[in-house]
Design a binder for these strands. Structure first.
Length: 389
DNA sequence: TCTGGGGTCCTCATTCCT
DNA sequence: TCTGAGGAATGAGGACCC
């Protein structure tokens, strides 16, 4: 084997695994006090203090759910109202991104102290190249994987699942084999026995659309995909995606573990409590719009970026989404400039239907010196520039 | 009573320029 | 002057991921 990679996933709130618990639904002011009760102590959540799913009314979705809750058919990305029908007795916890970031940093620090070549894949997932880690090859990588698991648990109280394989593609699939808190090792010779029986949907990069198209051709498993000739796949799915599917089915993936990356865009968006109309709810929409621009500007300034491409996204009440953007000559992170250009974009979309979502995005980023907290310009008063609609 | 928020990457069409 | 190829930049939309 040329290289070992592992993908690691945090399992949140493992101590609640016996109870049906879902996390999601956004964060309301009344959640703050509850969150304070368990901040920093994920093992000691006052479950009784939280709402039951059946009492929820709103537009949120589930961020994650315990295995006990999943038995009722609820899971990530499902609307909370639908989940409440399936499992009304489930406990609903509000999301707490500040806590997730804290634990995320902790768990990545632990890994970096053991294996320095790490790729960040979000709040609870990383790839690791431990080709050059001392002892990384012992027992096929199992010894090192165990050490990482134990170190993460000691530091955070959280469990994780680890997949070890010749490349990132297979390591990711392997990490799913043995959840939670498992270690799975897949060697090149295991492709036919362990990977080919899986549904194509298990490939990271095959989503619901690609799965449906594959099924339409009678292709369900990765093994069936592997049997299709490359030219046929390229004809059906395009040169690039077809070739990628073929490689994936044969377990080929040459992507390195990337330790550094620059952001491409930053955005803020919000779904309204109720659908808003550009004319009837003009003042409310204008205030939200201004606020989104200010928040993007603050994000850019805090992280030290400016961007040339400014855009908007909106979603109508029928769930159609449209985007518009415009590129300006000089990169900016100024809230008023973003507001002005985003306003021009807004003029280019039809506003005859009600809206459920509005977003503002800045792309084509370049690094600039970050603003320190005390040098940040004060946020402009909301409503001061209402009236673009 | 459906369907969040914050991202990346890809494709395709259009326009402008050489 | 006409036509066309090809590349870069831009803009819109969509698939996918955590």
């Amino acid at each position: 084997m040329d290289a070992f990679y592992a993908s690691v996933e945090l399992l949140r709130y493992p101590q609640l695994k016996g109870l049906p618990v879902v996390i999601g639904g956004g964060r309301r002011p009344q959640d703050e006090a509850l969150a304070a009760a368990y901040a920093g102590r994920p093992g000691d959540i006052p479950v009784a203090a939280f709402a039951l799913l059946k009492d929820y009314a709103g537009r949120g979705v589930i961020t994650t759910a315990t295995y006990a809750a999943r038995q009722f058919g609820v899971g990530s990305a499902m609307g909370l109202m639908k989940a409440a029908r399936l499992c009304p007795q489930a406990v609903l916890l509000p999301v707490d991104f500040a806590a997730y970031r804290r634990y995320s940093r902790l768990f990545k620090e632990v890994i970096l102290s053991i294996a320095p070549v790490m790729e960040d894949r979000g709040v609870d997932e990383v790839y690791i190249d431990f080709t050059r880690v001392a002892g990384g090859q012992r027992d096929g990588g199992r010894v090192l994987a165990r050490l990482i698991q134990k170190s993460i648990f000691d530091a955070t109280g959280l469990t994780c699942s680890i997949g070890v394989a010749p490349n990132k593609l297979i390591a990711k699939m392997a990490s799913e084999f043995n959840k939670p808190n498992g270690i799975s090792i897949v060697q090149p010779g295991d492709l036919q026995d362990l990977i080919w029986p899986l549904d194509c949907r298990k490939i990271n990069g095959v989503g619901p659309k690609a799965e449906a198209r594959l099924l339409a051709h009678g292709i369900r498993t990765i093994g069936e995909l592997a049997q299709r000739p490359l030219p046929w796949l390229m004809q059906q799915f395009g040169r690039s995606y077809g070739a990628w599917l073929h490689d994936a089915a044969w377990g080929r993936d040459e992507r390195p573990v990337v330790t550094k990356s620059e952001p491409v865009s930053m955005s803020r968006e919000t779904t309204f409590d109720r659908d808003l109309h550009a004319v009837h709810d003009r003042a409310e929409l204008g205030a939200i719009f201004t606020d989104l621009c200010q928040r993007v500007a603050q994000d850019l300034q805090r992280k030290g970026y400016a961007g040339r491409t400014i855009g908007i996204k909106l979603r109508y009440d029928d769930f159609r989404a449209v985007t518009r953007d415009q590129t300006i000559a000089v990169p900016t992170h100024d809230a008023a400039t973003i507001r002005r250009v985003a306003g021009l974009c807004l003029k280019r979309v039809p506003l005859d239907r009600r809206l459920r979502l509005l977003g503002v995005r800045v792309a084509s980023l370049v690094p600039v010196a970050p603003h320190s907290a005390d040098s940040m310009p004060p946020a402009r008063k909301q409503g001061a520039t209402v009236g673009l609609f």
